[in-house]
Design a protein around this nucleic acid. Structure first.
Lengths: 117, 117
DNA sequence: CTTGACAATAAGTTACAGCTTATATAACTA
DNA sequence: TAGTTATATAAGCTGTAACTTATTGTCAAG
C-alpha cells in the first residue's frame, strides 16, 4: 500500500519554526542530530523529538551509521503536501482571470430588495 | 508592510482536515458559513472558529453581504506556503540526480577506523 | 417593530504539543 | 574493559487547540 497521505501530521510538522529550520538545513544535505541541534538553544532530546515528528509525518528519513543517525529529506511526504497545495494554487489561477478577483475589489452586486436567494 | 509570512499559522491551519475541506470547497468558489458547515456534523460556532483560524493565517478572505459573510481563498497566504515548499521541492530535484539518492539505496561508505570526522 | 435567519463571541472542558531533566542504550576509542 | 560520544526514551509541566452549549448582534422580511 502507498504510505498513506498523513497530511495532518505533515502540515502540523511544518507549523513549527524549529522543524522548518531543520528541513531547510536538510535541504542542503544529510545531517546528524548533533549537527541539527547546534543552531538552537534547545536540548538534544527536544531536537530528537522534533525529528520523530518529522519522521512520523513522512518528511524525513533515517540512515544508520555507527552511533549516528543521519537524516535526509523524504521525497514522498513532501510531494504529498506539494500536490495538495497545487489544488489551491490552480484554483487561484482560475479565479484570477475570472469573476472572484472582481468581486474582491469592487462594491458587491448586493442582493436587492425583492430578489430571492 | 507586506503582511508578514505567518507561516506557523498557515501550516497549522492546514493540519486540520476540517479546514482543508473548507479550503477545498472554497477552491470551487465563494461560500457562506452555513454552506460551509453543511457537510460536517460540527456546530456552526465550530465552523466560525475554523474560519477565524483560516483568516488569521491569511488563507481566507471575507466579504460582507447583509447578514452573510461569504468567504473566498486569499492568494498571498497560499502563495507564501507554496513558495516555502518550493525550496524543499527544489532540494529534492537537486539530490535526485546526485548523491543522496544513492546513499539511500546503497550500503553506506561507512567511516573507516583511522578516519577523522 | 417584531420575527427569524445568519453569524460571531464567551465560557468551560478535554486532549495533546512542546519543552524540560533524568536516564537508558549502543557503538566507537583508548 | 572502562570511558566517552551519539542518540533515544521516560516522566512531568504548561500552554493552547478544538470542540461544546449558551448567548448576543445584525440585517431583512413582513
Amino acid at each position: 500500500m502507498h504510505a498513506a497521505p498523513k497530511l495532518n501530521a505533515a502540515f502540523a510538522a511544518l507549523a513549527d519554526p524549529t522543524r522548518r529550520a531543520i528541513l531547510a538545513r536538510l535541504a542542503t544535505g544529510e545531517a546528524t542530530v548533533m549537527e541539527l541541534a547546534k543552531p538552537f538553544q534547545m536540548s538534544q532530546p527536544a531536537i530528537s523529538q522534533h525529528l520523530k515528528v518529522l519522521e512520523d509525518a513522512g518528511l524525513v528519513a533515517l540512515r544508520v551509521d555507527g552511533t549516528r543517525r543521519p537524516r535526509r529529506l523524504a521525497k514522498p511526504g513532501i510531494e504529498a503536501m506539494d500536490q495538495w497545495l497545487a489544488m489551491l494554487r490552480k484554483a487561484l489561477e482560475k479565479s484570477y482571470d475570472r469573476l472572484d478577483e472582481i468581486l474582491a475589489g469592487m462594491e458587491p452586486p448586493k442582493t436587492k430588495k425583492g430578489e430571492k436567494r
